[in-house]
Amino acid sequence: CHSECLGNCSQPDDPTKCVACRNFYLDGRCVETCPPPYYHFQDWRCVNFSFCQDLHHKCKNSRRQGCHQYVIHNNKCIPECPSGYTMNSSNLLCTPCLGPCPKVCHLLEGEKTIDSVTSAQELRGCTVINGSLIINIRGGNNLAAELEANLGLIEEISGYLKIRRSYALVSLSFFRKLRLIRGETLEIGNYSFYALDNQNLRQLWDWSKHNLTITQGKLFFHYNPKLCLSEIHKMEEVSGTKGRQERNDIALKTNGDQASCENELLKFSYIRTSFDKILLRWEPYWPPDFRDLLGFMLFYKEAPYQNVTEFDGQDACGSNSWTVVDIDPPLRSNDPKSQNHPGWLMRGLKPWTQYAIFVKTLVTFSDERRTYGAKSDIIYVQTDATNPSVPLDPISVSNSSSQIILKWKPPSDPNGNITHYLVFWERQAEDSELFELDYCLKGLKLPSRTWSPPFESEDSQKHNQSEYEDSAGECCSCPKTDSQILKELEESSFRKTFEDYLHNVVFVPRKT
């Protein structure tokens, strides 16, 4: 048989008469490798580009789960590009990614509803959504962080984005990388972005840091009482949809009607710091009717980097990364020049730590249904340095008659930039024990000054392991946590139920 035959053949030295091919099969003959313009397919066939392209389009058009959109890589027609490569849609070739590779997620039936953290986790790592997304989240724990972890990498949506009755959302900033909504599939009414009845939605994105392009379709905003109209108009300008909307697409009466839409800028007039305090004062603000001013709200939190936005980490279910302080308005003076500047002394802060701070007014709604208010920009203030805590785990070892090696770990709280350490030492008198000992005694162990690591005695271990207080009263049991108490109650309830079950099964009433 021919060298490319495997198993047997019907005619000697003829690659077209093989029972099976050793390498690849091409047009009725066995070959060692697939010549151009053919590609290896499933490690035994040679196919042309049209064959591989037909497989790709067949799966793409069917949208069946589990099928493969075949691509070409290293002269092979394979189910998908290997790690580190992405497909070129024009020629199906796998090309190296520039940075992290995109991950295209194809949605069944063309859309997916995100109504819980669990459903959001199914899209973790996706960068391109081939379909439409509907966000409908009523509640949950730590929602802002969970949504950002699972949806934060999405850069492109081919269909539309719909935010509907998501009472738990305060902001859409968890879509931190969303840059493009194509609108290839539109919501009824030709809408590519749809926001309806979101009672706590206050911000779409921080438009000073976020760009969003909507290729096709219109915007729809109705019944978002805490979303200011200025935020919607800003989205029109940034996304390129200005002029597409009709009169009733953006409701003037049901958007922002319960919001404090600040239209003035508060400026800080005085800032002073110490290692654990920050004193702030800002310019006074009074609405047209000074009785509408209820006070100020001061927001602050630790910020290692200057990239904080107002609604980071917030949701309507209680999660809030900001510390909020309510401040009463100052006494009002008739003389504008003698107006008191409101302020606040922030206490209990960490030394040498940068804080993000902003302040906003708290006002009631005027009778004319106009909203007044003022808010400052987010500023960054760093507390002063102070003395560091003591170095940890000092170790001293003498390696000769004239040297001592000293080692330690950095302090747990540096409280500033540590530039150097101060080492103090003092000579001590020799131990009298060394002169009084009889060095001729056998088995004498000389006193040693070398360091030995501390260890816990058996008594201390027994005390720590004991669940009861000892007789001397030195140790006591740790208080039980809520989960331990709940577990004990469940076990007790189970024992009672099981005992009742045994009584009912074992003891049967005697027939009379």
Rank of each mutant, 00 (worst) to 15 (best):
V324Q: 03
M235V: 05
S166K: 00
L169W: 02
L178M: 04
I357C: 03
V308H: 01
N255S: 09
Y380I: 04
A168M: 07
Y191H: 10
N211A: 13
S132V: 02
E302G: 01
G140R: 06
S239L: 12
P342H: 05
S158Q: 07
N198D: 02
Y300L: 10
N224Q: 04
Q121N: 03
L280V: 14
Q203K: 12
T113P: 09
L227C: 06
K375Y: 05
E122G: 15
T118H: 13
N198R: 00
I154V: 13
I405N: 06
W286N: 13
I357L: 01
P329M: 13
Q245L: 09
C261E: 02
L133D: 01
D206I: 05
K209D: 04
E236V: 13
M297A: 06
N198H: 01
L252I: 12
S158L: 13
L172N: 02
F358S: 11
R202S: 07
P391A: 15
L180M: 12
A149F: 09
V170A: 07
N387H: 13
Q258P: 02
E264A: 04
Y167Q: 14
G189I: 03
V390S: 03
A149M: 10
L219P: 09
K234E: 15
Y300C: 11
D377H: 04
E187T: 04
S173H: 13
I163H: 00
D276A: 13
G110T: 11
L108W: 08
Q382C: 03
G256S: 06
S376T: 07
Y194H: 13
T127M: 11
L161V: 09
L362T: 01
E264T: 06
P288M: 09
Q339W: 05
Q245A: 14
E302D: 07
N200V: 14
Q339P: 10
N307Y: 04
P304Q: 02
W286M: 06
S158M: 10
G373P: 03
I154A: 04
K409S: 11
Q314Y: 07
N255C: 14
D393E: 13
Q354G: 08
K234A: 14
K234Q: 11
E155L: 08
Q216M: 06
S269D: 10
K209R: 09
I232N: 00
H222A: 08
D289F: 01
N142S: 14
H222R: 12
S260R: 06
D326M: 02
Q199Y: 04
G183V: 01
D206V: 07
E236C: 07
E184Q: 15
K253G: 09
F365L: 10
L229T: 09
E109L: 11
M235P: 00
L180Q: 12
T254M: 10
E236I: 15
I214S: 09
R370P: 12
E246R: 08
